[in-house]
């Protein structure tokens, strides 16, 4: 029985190749996307800072990459009116 298993055992190299191809396609894309996210985050923060006083950690940008469409969610905590106005 072991002998049959031995002969039946598929080689593993094709699996390695396929997994790498999928993984790297994602990793290459996500490096670019992350850069886009951090750029957007920075610029959005700069625009908001012109009008309201908010800290770095009060702005949250999330990206969700779908097959057809990606979404960008910007979540900003705006402080209370009395101390919100920028100088």
């Amino acid at each position: 029985m072991n002998i049959f298993r031995f002969f039946a055992k598929e080689s593993s190299a094709p699996a390695a190749r396929d997994r790498l191809q999928v993984l790297l396609a994602h990793e290459r894309a996500s490096v670019g996307d992350n850069d886009l996210v951090s750029k957007l985050r920075e610029e959005i923060l700069a625009v908001i800072a012109k009008h309201v006083k908010v800290g770095d950690d009060q702005v949250n940008v999330k990206m969700d990459r779908g097959d057809q469409v990606s979404t960008l969610a910007v979540d900003i905590e705006i402080p209370l009116e009395k101390d919100a106005r920028a100088a």
Partner: peptide, 14 residues
């Protein structure tokens, strides 16, 4: 030879 190592062609293509 056993097919358990990535092929040179595959590494090159990737």
């Amino acid at each position: 030879e056993r097919g358990d190592m990535l092929k040179v062609d595959d590494v090159l293509e990737i």
